[in-house]
Each structure stands twice: as C-alpha cells, then as structure tokens.
Design a protein around this nucleic acid. Structure first.
Length: 728
DNA sequence: CGGCTAGTCATTTTT
DNA sequence: TGACTAGCCG
C-alpha cells in the first residue's frame, strides 16, 4: 500500500474512473456496479482533493452504512494520505447523527449523557407501555408499534399520518407515548438518531450553517440504501454549493424493509439538476463465468436501470451448483471442500460461506468446530449483545443518565437482591405520584410499606450516587466499571456459581474492562481525558463481531446482507431454496426482486470460485421438511453453471424424526466414547458414574451422577474436562 | 421472591 | 431444535 504514495493517483484507472476521481465541484452520481473499483475511486478522489486542490481533510465528510465499511475506508485513506487522513470525517449515518445530536442536545430536548437504545431496549420500553396501557398484545403487538414508530421517522414526515381507523389511531397514540417516554428517559433509539438530528438541522438554521461551513465536500456511499430521512440529511448538509457525491448500485439495494427508498438514487438526476452521472461498468473482481451468472440472474428484474457489467478476464472455472440430500450433507460437502481448498493452498481467510438467515449459521459452526477448522461468524451473535455485557452497560448508563429507567429496571434486581415485580411496581407508583424518576424514588423505598428489599434498593442508590460523583471527579471509566462490578455484587454472584458459563461471563467482563483501558490509553495519547459518557457514546453504535478464537486465518460465515461490500477468492452460498431465497415471507411480486438482488450481491462477492448449493430436506423447527431448489438457480445462464445432484441420503426420510444413523456412526469413531455405568472424573465435580449416554449431532451426550452431592449433570463429552477413572 | 419445570413458539435481513 | 415464559412450589 505504501507505494501508492509515489504513484500518480490516476495510474491504472479507466477513463470513467479517472473522470470520477478528478470531479471537483457540484453533484455527482456514480452508478458503481459490483466490483467496479468503487472504493478505489472514492478514496482517490478524496486524496486528489486534499493533495491537489488544497482542500483540508476536515472539510470532507464521507458517510457509509456500516462501521465495517467506514473502517475500511479510513484504512484505505490512510494508506494514501497517511496521518493527514485522520481528520477526514468518515462515519456511518447513525454515528453522524449521534455526533450532531450530542453537540446540540439541549435543542433536541436531550440532556448530555443521553442513552442510546438498541433494539432490545426499544422493545422492552414498548412492551412496558403496552402493559401499562393494558393493551391486548393480540390486538396490537409490540412489533407493530415499533414498526410504526420507526417507519414514521424513516420517512421524516410524522405529521403526514392520517389516523382514520380505530387501529391506526391507537397505534399513533402508542407511538406518541413511546416518543414521550424516550424523552423522559433521556434516550434516543436508532431511528431517533437520524430523525432527531435531521429535525435539528431542519429547525435551527444556525446549527445547519455551522456544519455547512465545516464540511465543504460530502460523499455518501451505498446511496441506494438510504431512507428518506437520510436523503433529507444529505440534501440539508450539501447546501447551496452542492458538493455532493453519491455512489451506489440499484441492483444491490437490499434494505427496503428498513425503509430504504430506491427512488433516492433513481431520481437523483432530476433532483439535483446540474448533476453529472457516471457509470462504472467494468468489473475487476470476478471471473467471466461468475460475472455472467450474476448478470443473467439480475436481468430478470424489471425495476432497474439497465446496465451490463463486463470484464476483460476470460478464463475461470464454471460456477458450481450442488443439490444435496439433506442440510447436514450440504454442510459436510462444503466443509470438506474447504478442507481440500486449504490443502491446495487457499487460505481460510480468502473463503466465505454465505446464507440467508442467521439461524443457518449454527450447523456450520458445529461442524467447523468438530473438524477443527477455525471460523468466524460475522455479525451474528455480537459481543455487546451478551447478557453480562449489557448488564454492565446498563449500570454504566444509569450512572451517567439516572433518568434511564429501561437500564435501571434491567439491573435493579441483577444480581438478585430481592427486588421483585411487586417492589418495582410500588416504587414506580411512588415515582409517578411525586413526579420524580424511578431512580430518584429509590432512596424513599424504606418509606413504602411492604418492600422488604428497601435497604438493598437504598444501598444500590448510594452506589450509583457515588459512581456518578466519581464520573465528575475524573475517575477513569474502567475504574468506575470495575468498582460497580464489585460493589453491586455482580462479580460475587458470578464467582458463587462455578459453572463454565459463569466463568466465561467473568472472562467477557474482563475483556470488556480491558477494552475500556485501551480506549483510555488512546484518548490520552490524543491529548484528551477519557470520561464515561464519552466512552459510552463511542461504543454505543459499535457492534464488534466475535473474534476468531485462535486469531489465525479463519473462514468467514455471514448472512448475505452482511456480505455487501466485501469480496473473497472463494464464496459458498448455501441453502438456495424456495423459502430461503426467496424467503417465504418475501415471495410476493414486490419483494421478489429484492430477494433476487440479495443473491446477486452474494454471487458478486466471489473473485475466483463460486459454489452454490441447496438441500432436498432440511431440519426446520426440529422437524424435517422437504425443500425445493430456488427458482433463481434456473435463472442463471446454464452455460456458466455446472450442476450436480446428490441422491437423497437415506437418513433423511421426510417425517422420519431423528434417524441420522450414518452421521452418528462416523462420530462414534472420532470421539472418546463413555458407556453407561462407567466411572469418570470431572475436573470440577470430581468422581461420578455415567448413568446415561447417547450420541447426538454435537457429539456424545452423557449424564453423570456425582459422588460428592449425588446430583446428576449433563455434558457434551467434546466440551467437558473429563477422563475415565482408571486412565488416571 | 426465586428457582425450577413444563409448555409454547419461533426465523428474514441491521444501524 | 432450543430459547424463552408463565406458573408452580419451596
């Protein structure tokens, strides 16, 4: 990367790319097909502005959709510009919203240190409202309220709703209540980050002017996935000088369910009148067969601006398609293929497995683990979604934002301190009577009759008071967190339970505290002093994926949505069946095209080898169901695809329950088998006797009755520190 | 109030 | 299949 410094920026670019890089003033729309060197063009253009046009880095604002994309762009920029690139403002839309909101929070009706509610917090607040209002969840579900509240703000037109019917009226009332409660809690949810910040820019010309003067050059990536609120944000910030560059590809629009409006990109030309339009149509990523497969598939979409990607690469093996017997066969085939690719010299980090739904990742994870192939699940179960991390975060949120009742209610009885639903109810009632927050009501708990845990509540209150004072006195966030874990009794309660889960929870908390220390060091290195509110904001939108355990090269597993913007030498797409792709809820005319685009996105991630597959039978909700290959498979040009069909493997008779004999047979050989009646030693529980033993998909599952306490516990032998008594 | 059990219900996709 | 919940009992 270093030599990019000495090379001219235009070297090796095609004519369209050059034009895009050299574009200086005015609106520009770049239709950037998959693999057309989009990131390169974007970063080079920014570099060109900085180097040759005397634009200061801090005058440039670049907005992306995911943290990952933002991180990648920063990295590329620093590869070209070096340290200078640090000042370029590269953010996701949501973090841009947060940045603006936190700087003018009073005008937005928020106090500093406001909380950010993720989906789970949003859900629990809505649920609480429904319960309080005694709404039958059968009549109005919390999902309906959430959907409504989000859609409303995605469109930036809360006033435009006619509440004609009963249902709509009630829905509207509930969303209003939800917004009110958010304010009371001094909190913003994800949709609110966008909506409130745009409302702010819209309503305060002086604030808007501030940012217009700051950011003279504005770039939005993945423009096809912007919703209306984001569109308005772009329009406002671009201002009169209109130095707005948007990049996107209507064929890769896959977020309409989140309010994305494809017409933002399709109407850009008419919307920004003196706009220039460029089309990047040469693909540098994929081999010809892969590209042909992709274009033949997407050609079936009606609603799209016609374009055809081309490549100068002509060689390349065909796209492989395999119709497998059952889902386990499919996974096995893929894993074995990966092993053979590995031994032919292709590193795991160049390989990705893609699927439609998160739930599909599990069987892959299992088999990868069994075979000892390192893998990482991108976007699936995130570190910050773990219960213990969320608990600690809730403690920290209450510390800086005592109005945050959602967080307070989350941890008021975690660890268990005898504060049940009844006690909380009484406390809540008192807070309502006196017009104070739940937090402020805590010290009055001893005055309420029948609250036995009053002293504990008062004690917790004192702990929070002490913690918030230490925030002011400049105590480091990591110290505050460590103090809370200790004084709240959280650590003690984990230590009491010696099960493996508690140990891993403790480890996660340690890791979290370490990350805080890292943040503190970095902040200090920049010459700032770290504080808790700042820390919470910096991580609130950051969702780290689980790290590969070994740290070495690992196969990436992710949903098709998560794969956008990435590329791999080898790509597997699994479960291409009716019901998944298209997904069963997206079968109707309107949504079918988006499903097709989703597969298109997946296919175009592949550089050299592409393996598609589906299964004849699949276990869904525990029962085995027959499946059909996706219609999309037959839409791919037969000239570039090589199809193989497997026999239905016998174990998968429809409705045959759990008859997976041959699989278990192969397992039995690999694992150390324990027999019923056998004496064993467990690392933690000591001596015991095996009372049951059965073979499952994830290995041998045994029940041991322990001498020490006479209790029986169940284990998977593969994950248990266990040995036979006589082998010791 | 808290821990356990049995029964229910679920899976799009993400910031 | 397995995660979550309501409801029961200690």
């Amino acid at each position: 990367m270093k030599f990019e410094n000495s090379l001219g920026l235009l070297e090796g670019l095609n004519d369209v790319q050059k034009t895009a890089v050299l574009h200086e003033e005015g609106p520009l729309l770049i239709f950037a097909g998959a693999g057309s060197g989009k990131t390169r063009v974007i970063t080079y253009r920014i570099a060109h502005l900085c180097r040759h046009k005397n634009v200061a880095p801090w005058q440039i604002l670049a907005v992306t959709f995911t943290n990952k994309a933002a991180g990648e762009m920063r990295e590329r920029l620093s590869g070209i510009l070096g340290k200078k690139s640090d000042d370029i403002f590269v953010r996701t839309f949501h973090s841009l919203g947060l940045y603006i909101l936190s700087r003018h929070c009073e005008q937005a009706g928020l106090k500093s240190g406001f909380s950010i509610y993720d989906d789970a917090a949003q859900k629990s607040l809505v649920k609480a409202i429904l319960k309080e209002k005694k709404i039958d969840p059968e009549y109005i579900s919390h999902d309906a309220v959430i959907q409504f509240a989000n859609r409303m703000r995605d469109r930036f037109d809360s006033g435009a709703y006619s509440s004609s019917g009963h249902y709509d009226k009630e829905l509207l009332g509930l969303t209003d209540e939800y917004f009110k409660k958010l304010k009371e809690n001094n909190a913003v949810d994800y949709a609110g980050l966008l909506y409130e910040s745009v409302k702010l820019l819209n309503g305060y010309p002086d604030i808007l002017a501030l940012y217009r003067n700051l950011w003279k050059y504005f770039l939005i990536d993945e423009y096809q996935d912007t919703n209306h609120t984001q569109y308005v944000m772009g329009k406002l910030l671009a201002g009169e000088n209109n130095n707005l560059v948007v990049v996107g590809d209507d064929d890769q629009s896959i977020y309409s369910w989140r309010g994305a409006d494809i017409s933002n990109i399709l109407n850009f030309e008419t919307d920004y009148t003196d706009c220039r339009v460029l089309r990047l149509e040469e693909n540098y990523r994929s081999t010809a067969p892969i590209l042909k497969a992709a274009s033949s598939l997407i050609a079936n979409n009606q609603k799209r601006s016609k374009k055809e990607l081309f490549t100068s690469k002509h060689e390349g093996e065909p796209v492989h398609y395999r119709l497998c017997g059952g889902d386990l066969d499919e996974v096995k085939t893929i894993v074995e293929k990966i092993q053979s690719l590995n031994s032919s010299g292709i590193s795991s980090e160049d390989i990705a497995v893609l699927y439609r739904t998160n739930a599909q990742s599990r069987i892959f994870e299992q088999l990868f683990q069994e075979r000892g192939i390192p893998c990482m699940i991108i976007g699936g179960f995130r570190f910050y979604e773990r219960a213990e991390i969320k608990d600690l975060l809730a403690y920290l949120y209450v510390t800086v934002n005592p109005s945050d009742t959602v967080s307070l209610e989350r941890i008021i009885n975690v660890p268990a301190r005898g504060v049940g639903e009844a006690a909380i109810g009484k406390l809540r009632k008192l807070s309502q009577e006196r017009g104070i927050t739940l937090f402020e009501a805590m010290p009055f708990a001893p005055e309420i009759k029948g609250v036995r845990s009053a002293s504990k509540i008062a004690h917790l209150y004192a702990m929070f008071r002490e913690a918030s004072e230490s925030v002011f006195s400049g105590t480091f966030p990591s110290e505050i967190a460590a103090g809370i874990l200790k004084k709240s009794g959280y650590l003690d309660s984990l230590k009491k339970n010696k099960n493996p889960e508690s140990i891993s929870r403790k480890d996660n908390l340690d890791e979290f505290i370490n990350a805080m220390k890292e943040y503190e060091e970095q902040t200090l290195a920049r010459g700032d002093s770290p504080d808790l509110p700042g820390y919470l904001q910096s991580i609130s939108l950051f969702t780290d994926e689980m790290k590969s355990q070994e740290g070495g090269p690992a196969v990436s597993l992710m949903t098709l949505h998560n794969a956008k913007g990435l590329e791999y030498k080898v790509v597997f797409i699994a479960g291409i069946e009716e019901g998944y792709l298209p997904h069963k809820i997206s079968m109707d005319e309107g949504m079918l095209e988006e499903e097709r685009r989703l597969l298109y996105v997946g296919i175009t991630r592949a550089k050299e080898k592409l393996y598609l597959s589906s299964s004849r039978y699949r276990r869904i909700f525990g029962s085995i169901q027959p499946r059909m290959a996706s219609r999309f498979i037959s839409e791919i040009d037969p000239d570039v695809i090589e199809k193989k069909e497997e026999e239905t493997s016998l174990p998968y008779r429809p409705d045959a329950g759990r008859a997976v004999h041959n699989f278990n047979e192969s397992q039995r050989e690999s694992a150390i088998a324990y027999k019923t009646g056998e004496r064993v030693i467990h690392e933690r529980y000591g001596h015991g006797t095996v009372v049951t033993a059965e073979n499952t998909v994830s290995g041998q599952k045994i029940t041991i009755e322990f001498d020490e306490d006479g209790r029986s516990r169940k284990f998977l032998t593969a994950y248990t520190p266990l040995k036979k008594e006589n082998s010791a």
